[in-house]
Design a protein around this nucleic acid. Sequence first.
DNA 1: GATTATTTTTAGTGACCGCTACAAAAAAAG
DNA 2: CTTTTTTTGTAGCGGTCACTAAAAATAATC
Lengths: 199, 199
Amino acid sequence: MTATKKAQPRGRPRSFDIDEAVDRAVKLFHRRGYDAVGVAELGSELGIKPPSFYAAFGSKAGLFEQALERYTASKANVFNNALLEGGSVAEVIERTLLEAARIYPERDGTAGCLVIDGARNSTDPEARALVAALKVAGRARIRDFIATEFPTRADELADLLVIALAGMSSAARDGAKASTLKAFAEAASRAFRHEAARA
Amino acid sequence: MTATKKAQPRGRPRSFDIDEAVDRAVKLFHRRGYDAVGVAELGSELGIKPPSFYAAFGSKAGLFEQALERYTASKANVFNNALLEGGSVAEVIERTLLEAARIYPERDGTAGCLVIDGARNSTDPEARALVAALKVAGRARIRDFIATEFPTRADELADLLVIALAGMSSAARDGAKASTLKAFAEAASRAFRHEAARA
DNA sequence: GATTATTTTTAGTGACCGCTACAAAAAAAG
DNA sequence: CTTTTTTTGTAGCGGTCACTAAAAATAATC
């Protein structure tokens, strides 16, 4: 019994695919940022009307939360993916930076990182809190991993990576080319090894 | 004759100080970003009403343009100030990074760089174009200066600085402490010297 | 067929957005 | 004084924001 759909419940069936809707929302929020995407646009892009939207997601921020979950569980989570391939700390950090340089440049209208810049300058406290929590958790994971090899400098080295990624996301959203980000990522990776070897 | 005020013109005198209004606008736009600051709030903060606002600045984007001019002519222009103190390319870049680490952390509600992040995710094409032009011009000045010592690697080295500054602005707006930014700036400065010496 | 449960569509809500028409007010010029 | 010029305050423009009340539609269940 391969049940993905649990025997149709009672009422009128939903006329749209929630998973696909979240995927489209990821793209829209990534493209233009949380505030710049309106519920009206989300509705028309998702092919649903406001009441269906709110019945399914609760609020605009609710959809953003699901979009962030989808995003961080995808290949866009560059550190997670680099970590899965194993290797030394320096190797994982290098793969993280190079992968960011590969996926951050504009593609299909999206650029940079949704978590880093998706709620930048947003007026919505809920949206800001959602990305802030993800940033804190992400940085903690990076720091703890670095600490396995460099326990006394883990914070400083984690900040080096986090700030470098933020710069790359920012630059990508400003139109930086893949070659530019790749050169920066390589320099940042060399800097990481150099800093890790210091003191 | 020390004329800053040109013999009062004909009509009703302006009831507010334009220079001070621009200063306050710089702070507001810097604090929350272009889109998040409304004309109504600008008006009440500046003590003027819409018609006076539009008579003086033409539009919200017009005030933003003046705010950007004020900002880039101030001590916030870290590269300009570092350049004025002279020294080698590596020294100027180091001062640029360290000065950014000093002024980017949150102070009086403002953090990071108004040019880099002030119109991030804005929906207003005019505001985006204004900061985009400043970014292009700023990067060109940095690249040309670096080229005086490193003509073959000026672009790559300029991107290293520009992306590092973007990362610092982003991190500062996310609450990074001065000590965090300082450590990053020092590492970035070392990376710059190291990259400049390569090849 | 009748009941119940869920989602749908229709048609809005009040609040805020950037911006403006209009006329009174306040100054210099005649 | 009157005229001319500029800025002011009052009031409100059309548009968009996130969101919702109410009832019709569509399914399983009784």
